[in-house]
């Protein structure tokens, strides 16, 4: 038996807790069987293997300052993620990772930060938000703009409310559909960008959400004068190997798994312009 670490061979992790977030979304808290810490950068992802069922790429949604627990927030959209949803504490999963590029939280020091996200897209950004809040004094204004389908689909609602109650960070949540007992905003995320309070020429924007929402958000940011190379987006493509071997996630000359998933917009703008790239 080979002991050297093959990048295609998972390490074993044990489910400590599973927490229901939304009707189809849940959070797994894992620890390594080896008890080793699992350091990662905000924005990186893992390949999660469910015994016999398959492997899925899932971004890490926990706090990078707490590498002893590995946190993943997952939306059940396929057979593997449905299977993961029925995990119980004590179950073992295979983990390969962490893979991919990170949100530029270091480069953005001194800048205003605008976080634009929708749906499950908040999960890959949460580690970045934890980092920004833990190092609050190093950044200018921090704005979080979040969109969800309905008020019942708002991910991490309690945390969003907690962040919103802070005086040093502005949080705007909008939904696509609501009935009149919702006293928050109804509308699309890009509209929030027009009115948000930040200095465009000194702003770094971090975007993660459905590709169309990202496209319109980039446009709104550009109209406000945010520089193209200060806009970062997290892209989603089919990923099988996560290490640039399988070719599935190619986006022009980029491998989303190893060159991304977080890209400066300037590097992948063609993906937003050219169909079926």
């Amino acid at each position: 038996m080979k002991t050297s670490q093959d990048p295609m061979t998972p390490n074993l992790f044990q489910v400590q807790r599973i927490r229901r977030e939304l009707a189809d979304t849940f959070t797994l808290e894992l620890t390594a069987e080896s008890n080793n810490e699992f350091p990662f950068l905000p924005g990186q992802f893992n390949m999660i293997y469910l015994f016999g069922s398959g492997e899925v790429p899932i971004s890490i949604s926990g706090d990078p300052a707490q590498p002893n627990r590995l946190i993943h927030t997952i939306r059940a959209v396929g057979s593997v993620t449905e299977g993961l949803k029925s995990c119980k504490s004590g179950d073992m999963l295979g983990i390969r990772g962490p893979f991919g590029s990170a949100w530029p939280v270091e480069q953005a020091t001194g800048q205003d930060i605008v976080i634009i996200t929708g749906g499950i897209g908040l999960a890959p950004l949460r580690p970045a938000i934890y980092h920004l809040l833990a190092n609050r004094q190093r950044y200018g204004k921090i704005v979080i703009l979040y969109g969800a389908r309905t008020p019942a689909d708002i991910l991490f609602r309690k945390e969003l409310e907690r962040w919103r109650s802070r005086f040093d960070i502005s949080v705007e949540v909008t939904v696509d559909q609501a009935v009149s007992n919702w006293s928050g905003r109804v509308g699309v995320v890009p509209k929030l960008i027009n009115r948000a309070d930040f200095a465009p020429e000194e702003t770094t924007a971090l975007i993660c959400g459905p590709e169309i929402m990202m496209r319109f958000s980039v446009k709104a940011l550009q109209e406000r004068g945010v520089k193209e190379d200060h806009i970062y987006v997290s892209m989603e493509r089919n990923m099988k190997c996560a290490i640039g071997f399988c070719g599935h996630c190619q986006l022009g000359s980029q491998f989303v798994c190893k060159d991304g998933p977080v890209f400066p917009y300037s590097q992948i703008s063609s993906a937003f312009r050219i169909r079926e790239l």
């Binding site: 499950i120 696509d176 509308g187 509209k191 169309i212």
Partner: peptide, 19 residues
Amino acid sequence: SERLSAARLRLLDLYGSPR
């Protein structure tokens, strides 16, 4: 125009179930 675009975007149900 902005409201129409926004309405069209929401028509796509971007955050809805992909299946």
